[in-house]
């Protein structure tokens, strides 16, 4: 599902590699934590997976597509098979919960009847069915992140990428969000979570990939968070 083959990413000539000779294989349906301290290359990895950045060397094959060779006009279609969740939620403040989730379907040209059926379904899935009329500012941080997850899920992605999804949340809410991601993974979606939340990683007993200075320094099944 995700294959990194000796991937390097540098932001400019003479700059150190943000991702340095990384090799990684993720199977369909896996749940993977990518951990590491700030500047370890985790977020760059997410950007590479989103094809927001291009690899400097090596190759990246995601969902059977070589990202290095991918033409710009094909990126949009590729991204439709990914769901993405950010630390800062990135919700549209002037639109309510329903509209935020529906937005993800609208932009990929889904018919209105599909949107009307699918959005309540996914809101139910993340436990926000009763709050579909609320504006983001009327919700707690955890609820806003659930909206973001609903938006990421509404198009039934093959892979869900989460970049520090609990970074702005308290420990109890963080655990709820992780449990939600785990349930989503249980239904067959591959989940890749970038985090530096040690407690959560250690409690969930999932595969843990540790990065340091752009390099993958460990990759453990049912692993734990190791400080670099």
């Amino acid at each position: 599902m995700i294959d990194l083959i000796n991937v390097c990413k540098s932001y400019g000539k003479g700059q150190p590699n943000a991702v340095d000779h990384a090799t990684l294989h993720v199977d369909p349906g896996e749940f993977v934590f990518v951990v590491g301290s700030s500047g370890s290359g985790k977020s760059t990895l997410i950007k590479l997976l989103l094809r927001e950045l291009e690899v400097t060397s090596g190759d990246m094959v995601v969902l059977g597509q070589h990202l290095k060779k991918m033409k710009h006009r094909r990126v949009a279609k590729y991204r439709r098979r990914l769901g993405v969740v950010f630390q800062d939620f990135r919700l549209l403040k002037d639109r309510n919960v329903y509209e935020n989730v529906a937005f993800a379907q609208r932009v990929i040209n889904r018919p209105t009847r599909v949107i009307r059926r699918r959005v309540p379904e996914v809101l139910q899935e993340v436990g926000l069915a009763g709050k579909y009329k609320s504006l983001p500012d009327e919700l707690s941080g955890g609820e806003q992140q659930r909206v973001a997850i609903a938006r990421a899920l509404v198009n039934r992605p093959d892979i869900l990428l989460a970049d520090e999804p609990t970074g702005n949340l308290d420990p109890a809410t963080s655990l709820e969000i992780m449990e939600l991601l785990d349930r989503i993974n249980g239904r067959g979606t591959t989940v890749l979570v970038v985090t530096h939340n040690k407690d959560i990683v250690n409690s969930m007993k999932k595969r843990v990939v540790t990065m340091n200075q752009g390099m993958i320094i460990s990759d453990e099944e049912e692993g734990e968070y190791h400080e670099a």
Binding site: R73, A76, R79, L82, V84, R90, A104, V107, I108
Partner: peptide, 16 residues
């Protein structure tokens, strides 16, 4: 800008 960024991450085409 933010809305456009989200649109692009979700998979909106340039034309859209």
């Amino acid at each position: 800008k933010e809305e456009i960024g989200i649109m692009k991450y979700i998979g909106a085409t340039d034309h859209f």
